[in-house]
C-alpha cells in the first residue's frame, strides 16, 4: 500500500511532465493543424542548451531561463518560420514527415555532439519524507508543483487575457477569427512560442529523472502523443488528464504487470483508445477531415 502511494506520486510527477508536452502538442494542432512529430526531441534538446551553461557555472535559474528563451526562439520561432510555414501549404502529411526528418536531424546532431547520458541537476535536492508511512520523494512533489504552476499560468493566459481569447478564437475557427480582425498569424506564432517554452520547462523537469541523452525524445514523443490522444486532442484539460493518467498507469503497470513490457503499456492504451474512442476520453468528437 505504501509502495502504491509512492508509485502514484512518482507517476503523477512524470505524468505532469507528459501533460506539459502534450499541451504544446494540442495547442499546435488546434491553431495550425501542425502535428509535431519531433515534439519528443523538442523536449530532449533544451537540456543541451542548459547543460553547457550549468557546467560553466551559470546559476541554475538563469540557465533554465536562458534555455527557455533559446528554446522559444529556435524550437518556436525558427521551427515555424523555417519548416512549418513553407510546408504547411502542402498539407498535414508532408509536415508530419518533415517532423520525422527533423527528429532524425536533431537526434543525430546531438549524438554527434555527445552520445552519452548526462546527469542533469534537479530542481531541489532529493529528499524523501514520510507521510502516513508512505515514502514520498520531495523531487516528485516539486515537479508536480512546477508543472501545476505552469498549467495555471497558461490557463490564465488563455482564459483571462485578450490575447488568450484571440488565441482560442483562432483555435476554434480561424476563418471567423480572421473576419473578426484577429491577427491570426500572430496568434499561431504565439502558440509556437508557448510550445517552445513548454518543452523547455518539461526538459528541465524530466532530465534529472531520466538523464539528458540524445535518444530520450522517442519515449517522450510517444508519451506526449499518447497523452494527447487519450485525453482528447482538442482539449487542453484532456491533455492534462491524459498525461497524468498515462504517468500513473505506466508506473503501476511496470511495477505490477511486467517490467519487460513496461514500454508496451502506453502503446496498448493508445491503440485501444484510438480503436474505441478516437476523440479521447474527454474530447468532443471532431468531424473527420477528408
Amino acid at each position: 500500500m505504501a509502495n502504491l502511494v509512492n508509485l502514484i506520486i512518482t507517476g503523477l510527477a512524470t505524468g505532469a511532465i507528459y501533460a506539459l508536452v502534450a499541451i504544446g502538442f494540442t495547442l499546435l494542432w488546434q491553431t495550425s493543424q501542425t502535428i509535431n512529430f519531433a515534439q519528443g526531441d523538442f523536449v530532449m534538446l533544451p537540456a543541451f542548451f542548459m547543460l553547457p551553461m550549468l557546467h560553466a557555472g551559470v546559476p541554475y535559474w538563469l540557465a533554465i531561463l536562458i534555455g527557455v528563451i533559446l528554446s522559444m526562439l529556435i524550437l518556436g520561432y525558427g521551427y515555424k518560420k523555417l519548416l512549418v510555414d513553407p510546408i504547411r501549404k502542402h498539407g498535414v502529411l508532408p509536415l508530419a514527415i518533415a517532423g520525422m526528418a527533423l527528429s532524425i536531424f536533431m537526434q543525430e546532431g546531438v549524438k554527434n555532439y555527445t552520445a552519452e547520458a548526462h546527469v542533469f541537476p534537479a530542481l531541489i535536492p532529493n529528499l524523501d519524507f514520510h507521510i502516513f508511512g508512505a515514502v514520498v520523494s520531495a523531487q516528485s512533489i516539486a515537479v508536480v508543483v512546477v508543472a501545476l504552476a505552469v498549467v495555471i499560468a497558461l490557463q490564465w493566459l488563455l482564459n483571462k487575457t485578450l490575447v488568450g481569447h484571440q488565441m482560442q478564437a483562432t483555435a476554434q475557427n480561424s476563418t471567423v477569427a480572421r473576419l473578426l480582425g484577429i491577427p491570426v498569424e500572430r496568434m499561431v506564432l504565439y502558440t509556437f512560442l508557448i510550445n517552445g517554452a513548454l518543452v523547455a520547462i518539461a526538459s528541465a523537469l524530466v532530465s534529472p529523472l531520466i538523464f539528458a541523452k540524445f535518444s530520450t525524445g522517442n519515449i517522450m514523443g510517444m508519451a506526449a502523443f499518447t497523452a494527447a490522444i487519450v485525453g482528447g486532442f482538442n482539449q487542453v484539460r484532456g491533455a492534462i488528464a491524459g498525461g497524468l493518467l498515462l504517468g500513473v498507469v505506466n508506473n503501476i503497470g511496470s511495477a505490477y504487470i511486467s517490467a519487460q513490457y513496461r514500454d508496451a503499456i502506453p502503446l496498448l492504451l493508445l491503440i485501444l483508445v484510438i480503436l474505441f474512442r478516437p476523440q479521447g476520453l474527454m474530447g468532443r468528437a471532431e468531424e473527420r477531415t477528408v
Binding site: I35, F37, V92, A96, L275
Partner: peptide
C-alpha cells in the same frame, strides 16, 4: 476509423 497522424501513431 482514423486518418493521417492518428494512423501514423497507431
Amino acid at each position: 476509423r482514423v486518418q493521417h497522424h492518428y494512423l501514423a501513431f497507431v
